[in-house]
């Protein structure tokens, strides 16, 4: 019965996302059209005259009225066709499928790294507020969030590649001497492992470490601060006093009782940080020549590549919906109270 309630909750969350997605389709269409810049002029090249630009505009279908363009866009969309990028000539769906895994791999790895450092740090800081651990935590996260990612990225490259020589050159996902592993998930590290090709795995991981560290440093702050705050609140709550008065061990009090309660807001923060990172790591992708979705979007935007921009925004929107759903599911599993009210 309880599961029935929860699975229905998930279904309804999905249904609630549909109007949002429809809205995004409309808004991105209008916004891309409102952008200054003419894709036909760009496509025709600097030497083209007015007549050839008009011809290209006609070829691209941009001379038709906006509602007609919108209708054909939506019709294509419903058939799973995101259109073709005018700058590369590649279908947008294909480009996204190539680049999205690169961004996801980087972001997920960075998030994992960040959470592995920030959560224990936050817990340690919360157990002894204003102690040296707390001060050190505060210093680290403030520094992490104050330094821009392109700066920390360059600094890490300078130290670990240029001076120490520990890291491989910051040139994309895999050194040129290795072949990409056969695609299963699109994550090079995982695909290499699945292929039992450990040399490629190590090489992919080595490429991943520096950009992931750069991103992780930047995201330590929200995760560590939220962990600290919600852990302090949990440790100060009345059920912890009951647990102490019952003589439960410190480990049980801190981890089983306080930590599990404190994790609920942290899960939400993780979701927010993840979606923020995915869209905002363009600078990191540029510094490390990472063939991700962020740099793709910026390049498309610069040349008013309508189909590419629309495809990117839509892909991000779908990811957001799925991510929020995932957070809801985690929440429902972690907190028995969810789904009972409402």
């Amino acid at each position: 019965m309880a599961l029935g309630v929860k699975s229905r909750l998930i279904l309804s969350r999905l249904a609630q996302a549909l109007p949002a997605l429809a809205g995004i389709v409309v808004v991105t269409f209008i916004l891309t059209r409102a952008l200054p810049g003419d894709p036909a002029a760009y496509f025709a090249g600097p030497a083209a005259d007015a007549r050839s630009i008009a011809q290209i505009r006609e070829q691209l279908g941009l001379d038709r009225p906006l509602p007609v363009q919108f209708l054909s866009y939506v019709t294509d969309l419903l058939q799973g066709d995101l259109g073709r990028s005018i700058s590369t000539g590649q279908p947008v769906a294909e480009a996204l499928m190539q680049r999205l895994p690169a961004s996801l791999e980087l972001t997920l790895f960075a998030l994992l790294l960040s959470a592995l450092i920030a959560i224990p740090l936050g817990v340690a800081a919360a157990r002894r507020p204003d102690s040296w651990v707390d001060q050190a935590c505060r210093l680290l996260v403030t520094a992490g969030v104050s330094l821009p990612t392109f700066f920390t990225g360059l600094l890490l490259v300078y130290v670990f590649y240029f001076i120490l020589g520990w890291a491989p050159p910051p040139l994309g996902r895999l050194d040129l001497i290795y072949l990409s592993p056969p695609q299963v998930t699109g994550f090079f590290t995982i695909d290499a492992l699945l292929d039992r090709d450990f040399a490629t795995f190590r090489a992919a991981l080595a490429q991943l470490v520096l950009p992931a560290m750069t991103l992780a440093l930047f995201t330590l702050a929200p995760i560590a601060r939220m962990t600290r705050a919600s852990m302090i609140q949990a440790l100060g709550s009345e059920f912890i006093r009951t647990a102490r008065a019952s003589g439960l061990s410190e480990r049980r009090i801190v981890y089983t009782y306080a930590f599990r309660n404190a994790m609920l807001p942290v899960v939400t923060t993780l979701g927010m940080v993840f979606s923020f990172m995915l869209g905002a790591n363009v600078l990191v992708e540029k510094v490390f020549a990472w063939p991700g979705i962020g740099s793709f979007a910026v390049e498309a935007l610069v040349v008013s590549d309508y189909a590419a921009v629309q495809g990117f925004v839509l892909a991000m929107a779908v990811l957001f919906v799925l991510l929020n759903l995932l957070i809801d599911v985690v929440y429902t599993l972690a907190d028995p109270r969810v789904g009972m009210e409402g």
Binding site: E238, R241, T242, A243, A245, G247, D335, P336
Partner: peptide
């Protein structure tokens, strides 16, 4: 000693119990 020899019942019982256990 706590819980074994001396134990305590609190005000506001709903808050005195771990809400997710």
């Amino acid at each position: 000693l706590r819980g074994r020899e001396i134990s305590m019942v609190f005000q506001n019982p709903r808050l005195a119990l771990n809400p997710i256990r």
